[in-house]
Computed example of a mutant assay.
Amino acid sequence: MKPDSPLISVIIPAYNHEKFIGEAVESVLRQTIADLELIVIDDGSTDNTGKVVKSYSDRRLSYYHQENQDAYNTINRGLSMVRGKYVAILNSDDVYTRDRFEKIVAYQKKTGAQCVITDVIPISDDGQIFQDPDFGWNRWHSGNRKCYFESGDIYAAFLNGNFMVTTSNLFMTAEAAEKVGKFCSLRYLHDYDYIFRMMLAYPESVHYMADDKLLYYRIHPGNTLGEAAIIGREQDQQLIRKYMAAKVGQQDRLYAETGGQRLIDLGNELHDVRSQLEPAVMPGVRPALKTLIMSLRAWLAKKLPS
């Protein structure tokens, strides 16, 4: 790191978020740690996102515009530009708590972690916190956290579900970001793939600050149902198969059993989603789930030690 380099580099990939981008930018610039640079890359927005960003005159802020290339390519461009000792990513509709970096940097210096994630606070479009424990997202996140606490194993817990929640939750050393490399081309789950690769690169150095809620995560109306709900779960199945296989043979049955159960749960979730979106195709889904379970059992029989 050069002498004039900032402590922290923050990348915001922005797309058509004129309503939220100002709050995101301000949550970076108003951090209690001021030694940072903010790189905003506008991925071909057609609204006033760019105008809002350019209204800030802070010397730490750099703005770039490009033709639309999707989020993972936008993040990868940002990664090629960072200069800091640490690297963070913030989606243009999410918001940091003011002391996020202060708390994470102190934790990182104490533990030597290469990558740190925290707990998050779910909010609506107008900034209201979803506090009801029976709210669907809260139930999902609570279940993932429960698996983390019960298993005591961060890799196994991620096989059960992405409790990192979002790319915005990533905070890593520049060394780790360089070693893990670019984000993959999965449209919906590039963050999920990335955290698995991070855990494989640094098996003992990915840490979860489970008691600290240091990120506001925006949940938009209608986000959870539609084509993305199906494609996302199909990509989820692919990733779990891939990263479960990466651990089987190195560790023990915990990873395969946890990931296998998640595959079964995803089959059920796909059934529920398709029942709402595609009633006419439902007769073929349950048999497909049965086939998935049988295939999984055969795969595990080959992979697991007797």
Score class of each variant (00 low, 15 high):
1 M>Q: 00
1 M>A: 03
2 K>M: 07
5 S>F: 09
11 I>T: 12
11 I>E: 08
15 Y>P: 00
20 F>H: 06
22 G>D: 08
23 E>M: 04
24 A>I: 10
24 A>P: 11
27 S>E: 15
33 I>L: 14
36 L>E: 03
40 V>D: 12
43 D>Y: 12
51 K>E: 14
54 K>V: 15
57 S>W: 04
57 S>N: 11
62 S>C: 06
62 S>E: 06
63 Y>C: 14
64 Y>E: 14
67 E>C: 09
70 D>F: 15
74 T>H: 00
75 I>G: 14
80 S>W: 07
82 V>T: 03
87 V>K: 03
87 V>M: 05
88 A>D: 05
100 R>A: 13
100 R>D: 13
106 A>D: 13
109 K>Q: 06
109 K>V: 05
112 G>L: 12
112 G>H: 02
113 A>Q: 12
114 Q>K: 02
117 I>S: 00
122 P>V: 15
123 I>K: 00
123 I>V: 15
123 I>R: 00
124 S>G: 14
127 G>C: 13
131 Q>N: 02
140 W>H: 01
141 H>G: 07
148 Y>V: 01
152 G>T: 10
159 L>C: 14
161 G>C: 11
163 F>L: 11
163 F>P: 01
173 T>N: 00
180 V>I: 08
184 C>R: 03
187 R>H: 09
188 Y>A: 15
191 D>K: 04
191 D>T: 02
192 Y>N: 10
193 D>P: 01
193 D>H: 07
199 M>F: 13
200 L>R: 04
201 A>N: 07
202 Y>M: 13
202 Y>P: 04
206 V>L: 15
207 H>Q: 04
207 H>R: 12
207 H>W: 01
208 Y>T: 12
209 M>D: 05
211 D>G: 14
212 D>C: 09
217 Y>T: 07
220 H>V: 14
220 H>N: 05
221 P>E: 14
223 N>A: 11
224 T>I: 11
225 L>H: 01
228 A>Y: 04
229 A>C: 11
234 E>R: 01
235 Q>V: 09
237 Q>K: 01
238 Q>D: 15
241 R>Y: 06
242 K>S: 12
243 Y>T: 07
247 K>A: 13
248 V>A: 05
249 G>L: 05
249 G>V: 05
250 Q>K: 08
253 R>Q: 05
254 L>I: 03
256 A>I: 01
257 E>Y: 03
259 G>T: 08
261 Q>H: 05
262 R>W: 02
271 H>T: 00
274 R>H: 03
276 Q>M: 14
277 L>F: 03
277 L>A: 10
279 P>S: 13
280 A>T: 01
282 M>C: 07
283 P>I: 08
287 P>K: 06
289 L>H: 06
290 K>L: 15
292 L>Y: 01
295 S>V: 10
297 R>I: 13
299 W>A: 15
300 L>D: 09
303 K>D: 02
